[in-house]
Amino acid sequence: MTAQTITAAASGTFRLGDLRVNRVGFGAMRLPQHGEAFVADAVPRDRDQAIGVLRRAVELGVNHIDTAAFYFSPLRSANELINRALAPYGDDLVITTKVGPGRDPAGQWLPHATPEQLRGQVEENLRQLGRDHLDVVNLRIVGTNSIADRFGALAELRKAGLIRHLGLSNIRPHHLAEAQSIAPVVCVQNMYGIGASTEQKEFLRICGEQGIAFVPFYSIAGTGREGGATADDSTEVQAIARAHGVSAAQIRLAWTLHQGAHVLAIPGTGDPEHLAQNVAAGALRLSADELTVLDSLRHAAT
């Protein structure tokens, strides 16, 4: 079976609340531009190419797309590209977005939203996506302070019908416990990949025990973060990739999915070939020995 014929269904499924999605999804952060995200001089991606990648993702069975209103570059907005490419949306398509951070029209970061400002961010996502409700909204956190007032504001919007499910991003375990005392949490988005720390692995395990989807970001990019994957993969990762006839990035994705049935992947790309490879990674099966080798690596921690 070639990479072009493997669909996201090969990765299995998990639930975001009552919404069932394939475990390989698509992250829209890198879609609006070439190169590093969130830089003022980013080169906008060709609109037709971006739209084509989104449509191809859905053709390949991707039914979980992660986005945010602050994913934009000069001339391109991830949300509006999604709207243009995929509306009217299929019944099984789940679009997850994030609120909390914001950027001004010049691309500069703004202070994180107050509880009162979060409704405006939710409504901006609704407008850009052309939706009357948002499937999942993640509150992205910076720091360790209480999130009760901000998460409570989103819980009120959920009661009002603007949001179906709530999640959290970039959090610590105490944030999850605090949020759960206010409203149900269906997913946690945290940085995670080969080289994860003991604390990160423990948090992933806790989410699994509670039936909460764990959605790693930078699972391919690692220390490259917004800049994308680096070329410094260890000899161990490269050797396992050669043994399977795939790329190091695909091995990183496969390892991520092997961490638990509740783990979802949201790799992002603007390249159709890389998209097919990312989806195909959901069909890779790593041996116990290979997992032991990859689990022992520490170079990409935090």
Rank of each mutant, 00 (worst) to 15 (best):
161 G>C: 03
166 L>Q: 09
161 G>A: 03
162 L>I: 01
122 V>Y: 09
212 I>S: 02
212 I>M: 11
216 P>R: 09
136 V>W: 01
145 N>D: 15
110 L>Y: 06
155 A>V: 10
101 P>W: 05
175 H>F: 00
137 V>A: 06
110 L>I: 08
213 A>W: 12
203 F>W: 04
182 I>V: 06
141 I>Q: 03
198 T>N: 15
177 A>W: 03
108 Q>Y: 15
118 L>D: 09
104 D>I: 09
174 H>Q: 15
214 F>N: 02
87 A>L: 10
205 R>T: 14
89 Y>Q: 11
105 P>Y: 11
109 W>M: 13
95 I>V: 14
101 P>G: 00
145 N>W: 12
141 I>T: 01
112 H>M: 12
145 N>H: 13
155 A>H: 03
137 V>H: 03
167 G>A: 09
99 V>W: 13
124 E>F: 09
192 Y>I: 05
119 R>W: 01
115 P>R: 11
192 Y>W: 12
157 L>H: 01
216 P>V: 10
127 R>T: 08
148 A>W: 10
144 T>A: 14
180 Q>V: 08
209 E>R: 11
148 A>H: 10
136 V>T: 00
169 S>N: 13
142 V>E: 15
171 I>G: 01
214 F>M: 08
100 G>D: 07
86 L>F: 08
107 G>V: 08
184 P>V: 05
89 Y>L: 07
130 G>E: 07
163 I>K: 00
179 A>E: 02
121 Q>T: 07
131 R>M: 14
197 S>H: 06
217 F>D: 05
212 I>D: 04
152 G>T: 01
106 A>I: 01
108 Q>V: 03
207 C>E: 05
94 V>Y: 12
210 Q>E: 07
167 G>T: 09
156 E>V: 14
124 E>C: 06
94 V>L: 13
150 R>F: 07
138 N>T: 00
96 T>L: 09
140 R>I: 08
156 E>A: 14
179 A>T: 01
125 N>I: 02
206 I>M: 13
111 P>R: 05
148 A>I: 10
167 G>E: 10
90 G>S: 14
208 G>C: 11
148 A>E: 13
193 G>E: 04
118 L>F: 06
207 C>H: 07
140 R>V: 05
113 A>I: 05
163 I>V: 07
101 P>N: 02
167 G>H: 08
191 M>P: 12
143 G>M: 12
102 G>Y: 04
209 E>W: 15
175 H>L: 03
93 L>G: 04
203 F>L: 15
172 R>T: 08
160 A>I: 01
184 P>L: 06
214 F>T: 07
147 I>Q: 05
123 E>V: 06
89 Y>I: 05
170 N>I: 00
201 K>M: 13
115 P>G: 13
172 R>S: 04
213 A>Y: 13
112 H>F: 14
115 P>H: 10
193 G>W: 05
218 Y>E: 12
